[in-house]
Structure formats: structure tokens, C-alpha cells
């Protein structure tokens, strides 16, 4: 593909790609929840949240503060959580990350991973707490293997998101 947009349709396509790749990849990751895996113990990471948090840490400026509300609603509907669960957790975590962004000057790979790990733990705890309010008496401990896997899967997901980002911004 030429580096210069040859026509207005090329420009439109690039604009579309630039705007919608982050959203579309998050929605696709949410759809992974409908894969025909039948498990009796939580082990598989929540890919939608991983992809979202990777995009957020890579490109803080593309997300308006309310973007997580429709994304969270979609995730709740697809994955069978109580409606509102991802909406409230994702938005809260994004607002906290904004706060963290305004306080920290330097960011590098390890700090991003640390933020992601804290966010993943908070997300798991929040989901467990909401389920608890709804009469589910499962212990938080049963989520720990899944949370560890999620934390260790973050670099991989972040790498994929970086690849997507390069493609998104490519000319």
C-alpha cells in the first residue's frame, strides 16, 4: 500500500481504522467469552478486560472517560454477568488510572505491568464482591489462579495490542 492516500475513500478507510480498531478489538475479545468452553473452575483470563486495559495503558488519550460504559454493557450482556457489573468496574478503574496518570511522571514497561496487575486484581475483587452481594458464597481464593494467569498473560496481550496499534496508525 502506498504511503500517501490516493483517494478520499482511502482517507475515509484510514480514519475509520484509526478510530475503531481499539473498540472493535475490545468487543471481539468480549466475544471470546462465548467460545464453547465448558469449565467448572475459573482459569481462563477475562480477555476483554485485558485488551481494554492494554489499550488504556498504551494510548490513554484515545479514551473519553465514559467510553467504558457502552463497552461494559456489551461485555455484561455477552458474558452473562449481572448487567452493570463491567460498566461500573471498568469505569471506576479507568478513573483511577487517570488519577494515577496525573500523579506519575515516568512510565515504562514495568510500571505499566504493575498498574495492569493492580487493575486486574481490583477487577477480580470487584466482580467477586458484586457476586457476593447477590448471594454467591464462593471464596475469593478460588479466583487467585485465574488472576495470576491474567497478570502473566498481560504482556502477551499488550504485545498484540501494540501490533494492532502499529497497523492502526500505519500509512
Amino acid at each position: 500500500m502506498s504511503r500517501i492516500a490516493g483517494s478520499s475513500s482511502d482517507v475515509a478507510w484510514m480514519g475509520l481504522r484509526r478510530q475503531w480498531v481499539p473498540v472493535a478489538s475490545t468487543l471481539l475479545a468480549a466475544l471470546l467469552d462465548t467460545l464453547p468452553i465448558v469449565a467448572t473452575t475459573p482459569l481462563v483470563p477475562d480477555f476483554a478486560f485485558l485488551v481494554l486495559i492494554a489499550w488504556r495503558l498504551l494510548r490513554p488519550e484515545i479514551w473519553p472517560a465514559w467510553a467504558t460504559l457502552p463497552l461494559g454493557l456489551f461485555n455484561d450482556l455477552v458474558s452473562g454477568h449481572s448487567i452493570g457489573e463491567s460498566m461500573v468496574l471498568w469505569t471506576a478503574i479507568f478513573l483511577l488510572l487517570e488519577l494515577a496518570d496525573s500523579r506519575t511522571g515516568w512510565r515504562d514497561y514495568w510500571i505499566d505491568w504493575l498498574f495492569a496487575a493492580v487493575a486486574i486484581l481490583a477487577h477480580g475483587f470487584g466482580g467477586w464482591f458484586i457476586a457476593r452481594q447477590m448471594g454467591n458464597r464462593a471464596e475469593f481464593v478460588i479466583l487467585l489462579p485465574q488472576l495470576c494467569l491474567s497478570v502473566s498473560a498481560y504482556p502477551l496481550v499488550a504485545r498484540m495490542v501494540v501490533g494492532l496499534d502499529r497497523w492502526r496508525l500505519a500509512r
Binding site: P64, W66, L69, G84
Partner: peptide
């Protein structure tokens, strides 16, 4: 624009909490 983004996010969170409370009352 940025300020209203935060306002909408906050209001949306309250709304989501309300949805959760409704789900607790009427599963």
C-alpha cells in the same frame, strides 16, 4: 468537553450501580 466526559462517566457509574441493585432485588 473533558469535564463533561467525567460527569457522564460518574453518572453512568451511578446508573450501573442502580442496575446492579435492581438485579439484586429482582434477579
Amino acid at each position: 468537553g473533558r469535564f463533561f466526559g467525567y460527569v457522564i462517566a460518574g453518572a453512568g457509574m451511578l446508573f450501573a450501580v442502580l442496575l446492579l441493585v435492581i438485579a439484586i432485588i429482582d434477579p
